[in-house]
Structure formats: structure tokens, C-alpha cells
Write a protein that binds this DNA or RNA. Structure first.
Lengths: 183, 183
DNA sequence: CATTGTGTTCAAAAATTCTTGAACCTTGCT
DNA sequence: AGCAAGGTTCAAGAATTTTTGAACACAATG
């Protein structure tokens, strides 16, 4: 009574349905994702997994969220990269199943690792590049001005480099809730 | 020797030219902007102003950056909103002139104020909405699961609300460089 | 070793976001 | 009031990003 080729003549909310509150949570993460500059589908996928107690397969994600295979595959891969979902292979089953990471510390540090750290690294290279160009600079005046700007940027870079680890620390404090904490 | 209707038959890098290091700085901010989810033109405009000692008019920004009137206008408005640029009216001149805010603390707090704070506020509303939907929820089981998720999200929200002011504080510390500091 | 179940890739389509520029305000000047 | 300079708006076009789905790869199974 739940073959997956059910029909396509009607709205088809999926054989596997969601509660309204789940849709609201998914919507919340959809908006959160796009405000972080991530594709909306990433947010949806994370949101769905966040709501569920048991791990879901890619098929279930596609079905519940009504998204394509490609989106599901790419989204799950990216989320795993961030450390926002982890996967398990149920013994005796070929399907990979996914669960959401719900420890804020892990989410934040994964996000920073993937998004902020690379930028800081590229920043170093860019600062060096500016330093080089400064030599060729037109007037002496411009050279001095450029040197000042370079100092400022270096200072900013240094501060950001200090801030990020601090954020990772702070967010970790008192992460646990009254509920069970499988750490 | 520097009329603004000069020619349009050649590449036209602008009568007002930039040094190479300035282009590199502008490029740096262009990338930074898009990694913050802001339009690239915002980054370019900020970068240009960041490089300069004297305030620039909108015309000069358009000319140097080769961007349209609309982009310049909107970009400058948005940057002012963030507190990333400020404008002055030179006495006896109708043109508005712009300078970049160089203090990292100001930049960060402006960004957080415009981007993060609104999200936290909307978050409160969303949490309430979820709480409501929870009542209608299908099974008792789903209701309990939903209540747990609601708790988790509330905890996250609380932590983020604590973190942001802290970040604003931390970035402010030792903002000044060897150079003069007009604070 | 052909087949089936699972998941990945990637070019093309769809959706979204950014930029442009012409029309339109507003203000100050004569 | 008429005019011109300075700036804003916003619909349309351009550019970019996201999603899709069909083709592909891989491994386990009969």
C-alpha cells in the first residue's frame, strides 16, 4: 500500500507526510541557510533531518521534500562536509542513512572551518600580493597611502584570526540541554 | 584638463585612474563582500573609498569603478546603512562626498546589526509559530518530538543572542594601529 | 557476468540576484 | 517659475546560482 510509483495526477504530498510543525522548522532552516549564503535546499534537508529521530535515506529526503536526486545528493554531501549531518550504513542494508548534528558547537565550528578559515588563508595571499604591487606604485605619495592601508588590513586580519577560535570556544559553553546528551 | 565627457571610443579606464594596488584592494573587498552575501559592487565601492584619503563623490565612484549610476547610488546607500561609509557635504558644494569607515569594530557591529539582529528577531516569531503548530500536531508522539526540537532551537537562539554582543565587544579591543586613531 | 539498487556527475533549464539607464524627484539658483 | 545639478527609483536585461534529471559508475546479488 505504499509503492513509490503512486500517481502523479494529484498534488501528491508524498506517501510519507510531514507534520505542520516540521514544515515550519524546515522553513526556518531554509531561511537560515540562505541568510548564510547557502542554497535553500541545504537548509531544507538539514531541517528535515533535524526534526526526525531516525536516520533518513536519500530517497526519503527526496520524497518528503520533493526535491531532485541531484539536489539531495549534493546537499547531503555538502552538509556532511560541514559536519552538519552524519551518515550510517544500517547493517544488512545498502542504503546510506543520514542524521542531523544538533550540537551547536559542531555546527558553528564546521561552518567556520569551511567558510571563514579559507577566506583568512586567501587573505594572507592577497595581502602579500598588495605588498608586491605597492613597489610598482606610481607616486611616492600613493606608495605611502598604500602602505597604510596594508597595515590596516593586516590588523583586521590578525583580529579576525583571533576572533574565530574564540567564537568556537564560546558557543561550546553550556551547549547541553536538560535532555539526554549523546556526546 | 579633466572634463568628465572625455571620450568613449577607446577602452577608457577613466580620466581618474587607479593604482594597481588599489585595484587589488578593491578586488579583495569585492570577494569579501560576496562571501558575506552582499553584492559585489558594494565591495568595490567600499574598497575604493577605503583606499582614498579624500572623500569621493558619487560621480567619481561611478567613473573610477565603471559602474552605473543606479549601482553607485544603491551601493552607497546600503553601505551608509551598515555604517561602512559616511558622507559629508563640503560647504559650498552640492555634491555629497563619501568616506569609508575604517574602524573594524564599527564595521562588524554595523554588519551584525543589519544582518544578524533582524534574523534573531524573526527567529523569536518563528519559534512562537512552531509552538502554536505543535498543538495541532498529529500524534502525541510527534508532539513530544516537536517539543524537544523547539527546546533545542530555543537554546540555540539564546546562545546566539549572547554571542553577538560579545563579538562586538571583542573586535573592538585593540582596534587602533600605530597610526593616529580618530575615535 | 548481467542485473539491480544506490549514489554521483554535469550540462541544460529554472530561479534568483545584480546591474543598468532612463524617467523621475528635489533642491538651489537666477 | 524655469532651469540645471545631484540623487533616487525601478522595470528590464544580464549575470550568476541553484535545481533538475538523464547518463554514468560502482558494488552487491543471483
Amino acid at each position: 500500500m505504499r509503492s513509490s510509483t503512486d500517481t502523479e495526477v494529484e498534488p501528491y504530498v508524498g506517501v510519507l507526510a510531514m507534520d505542520e510543525w516540521e514544515s515550519a522548522v524546515i522553513d526556518l532552516f531554509l531561511h537560515a541557510a540562505s541568510s548564510f549564503g547557502l542554497p535553500k535546499s541545504y537548509g531544507q534537508i538539514y531541517g528535515l533531518l533535524f526534526c526526525r529521530d531516525q536516520a533518513l535515506s536519500m530517497d526519503e529526503v527526496m520524497d518528503l521534500l520533493q526535491i531532485s536526486k541531484g539536489s539531495a545528493s549534493q546537499g547531503l554531501r555538502a552538509l556532511r562536509q560541514f559536519g552538519a549531518v552524519s551518515s550510517t550504513f544500517a547493517p544488512g542494508d545498502r542504503k546510506e542513512r543520514f542524521v542531523a548534528e544538533i550540537r551547536l558547537r559542531k555546527l558553528v565550528s564546521g561552518f567556520l572551518r569551511e567558510q571563514a578559515d579559507p577566506h583568512l588563508d586567501k587573505g594572507v595571499a592577497r595581502l602579500k600580493q598588495i605588498e608586491v604591487l605597492l613597489q610598482y606604485s606610481g607616486s611616492k605619495d600613493s606608495q605611502i597611502r598604500g602602505a597604510r592601508r596594508h597595515e590596516i588590513l593586516s590588523g583586521w586580519h590578525r583580529q579576525m584570526s583571533r576572533l574565530l577560535p574564540l567564537v568556537k570556544m564560546i558557543v561550546g559553553k553550556s551547549d547541553r540541554l536538560p535532555q539526554k546528551n549523546k556526546d
